[in-house]
Amino acid sequence: MWAETDSALRKSVIGNIIIKGLSRDINDLALSSTFSRFREILSNRVVCDSNGEPKGYGFIYYATLEAAELVIEKLDGSLLNGYLVSVCHFKTYKEHQAEQKSSSKPPQKKDFSLYVQNMPYSLSSEELGSLFSAFGEVTSATVITKKRRSMGYGFVTYSSLDDAVIATSVMNGYIVGNRPLRVAFSHSNTFLNGMLISSVNIAYFNMLIKTFYFSN
């Protein structure tokens, strides 16, 4: 729901935060009630699946970076309806790329792969795929093993860049078996060429605005 009609302000992502680990009982109204106590919000959305069931994460949009940072400081790592939640800035694909620029090679091929670390050793490849399939079509999910024992890390590949970006933002820091996952775009399997980066980013931002900012 929008309380601000300035289209230029809506298209900015400067005050956008993502909340991970939400109770499935939290809806848009409950999310708004909790986060509007600190600063006025422009919009909020709990992300749901095709059946209308909450996926356990959502977005809050503030007018300023200062407001977003205040809420992150106050609520990150706090309990909400008995669930430990993570509150952080939502990062776009470009921001993810900038963070990894020093250690990753220029993208070469279309392979939307994520590197997942700090997994529970009991997590299987099938369970890994099931966990990440909430965000889109997973084409492969592999837990790396040695002598049939998990090494605690693996790879998840999506057919869509949009799905991979959302999954990275939501699942990085997500608690599985008392272990916070570490999720990033794969360094070893570069996945986009220069021309595709520009075209996919345009599609991504259009999707982001339409899905999270203008839908009710």
Rank of each mutant, 00 (worst) to 15 (best):
M1Q: 05
A3E: 15
A3H: 15
A3G: 14
D6L: 05
A8Y: 09
L9S: 12
R10L: 07
K11F: 02
V13F: 07
V13K: 05
N16Y: 07
I17F: 03
G21T: 12
S23G: 02
I26H: 09
I26Y: 09
N27W: 13
N27V: 12
D28Q: 05
L29Y: 09
L29V: 10
S32D: 07
S33D: 12
F35H: 04
F38V: 05
F38K: 00
R39C: 11
I41Q: 09
R45Y: 11
V46T: 07
D49P: 06
E53M: 11
Y57H: 11
I60T: 05
I60Y: 06
Y62G: 11
Y62D: 14
L65G: 08
E69V: 03
V71M: 04
V71D: 00
E73I: 09
E73C: 11
E73G: 09
E73T: 13
K74R: 10
G77T: 02
L80F: 14
N81S: 14
C88D: 13
Q97H: 12
Q97T: 14
S102D: 15
P106S: 13
P107Q: 13
L114G: 00
Y115I: 00
M119E: 04
P120V: 01
S122L: 12
L123C: 03
S124R: 13
E126W: 03
S130H: 09
S130V: 04
L131T: 00
L131V: 02
F132N: 03
A134I: 07
A134P: 04
E137F: 03
T139C: 08
T142K: 15
T142E: 14
I144R: 01
T145R: 07
K147N: 13
R149H: 10
R149A: 07
M151L: 15
Y153R: 01
Y153A: 00
V156G: 02
T157W: 02
S160K: 03
L161W: 02
L161P: 04
D163S: 15
S169I: 06
V176F: 04
N178A: 05
R182T: 09
A184K: 12
H187E: 12
T190S: 12
F191W: 13
N193S: 08
G194S: 15
I202E: 12
F212G: 04
S215Q: 12
S215L: 07
N216Y: 09
N216Q: 13
